[in-house]
Amino acid sequence: MTPLDPTRPVLELQEVRKAYGPHLVLHSVDLVVPAHSVTVLIGASGSGKSTLLRCANLLEEVDDGAILLDGEEITDPETDQDAVRRRIGVVFQQYNLFPHMTVLENVTLAPRRVHRLSRSDAEARAGELLHRLGLGDRAGDYPDRLSGGQQQRVAIARALATDPRLLLLDEITAALDPELVGEVLAVVRDLKEQGMTMVVSTHEMDFAREVADQVCFLDAGTVLERGTPEQVLGDPQHERTRRFLHRVTGRGRFTAR
């Protein structure tokens, strides 16, 4: 591996294209995610946000273009996909915790089985993480004993347990009750403080404004508009961006008829 260059982006998408049958989901998407920065993807459902994240983690195969992680092309057919996924943490909208394992077992699974940490090391590190996320006393519980917000924080702890280079968060608050959203977003805010590189898709515009270094508005599979939160959320240049923002932030949100 080449030595780490601080100016080199952690993740880079070059003209990525992805179609499901006749349906074009990503249409020549470019994206640069510098180290220690947070990129927030916004856009309507079906605009390609989730597909973009799934492609970055190689859960989907891109049709064209390339994705680079730390400057190495990971969409090369010769790439060891498991090795790539070891360096990327993912948190899903539906948590996807393993229901037959306790919280601690969920968090220590990858450190022990993939990274071959000893049980005591893995558990010590997991305990520390859970404590940091306010779950220190839930380590022995099974996921179905926890609230949605707690489950999602466990999912974040599980993704962080392997010290990923990059964290992908796919609408992680969309399945939560409103009063539980805050506790999960607070965790993400802390992660930003600590310099974690993240790509986040979300419908929480206030949160996007607060944590984003870069906001990308996806529309019909293209990045229609990108820039700082002030530029994209405060002074959008495109009519479609303005209409979208009006729908999700303005009155539109509460009179969704």
Partner: peptide, 17 residues
């Protein structure tokens, strides 16, 4: 590999046509 990537701040390049 050339740096074909669009940087931040660039309004969307509509290559859809």
């Amino acid at each position: 590999m050339s740096a074909t990537t669009a940087g931040g701040g660039m309004p969307g390049a509509g290559a859809a046509d």
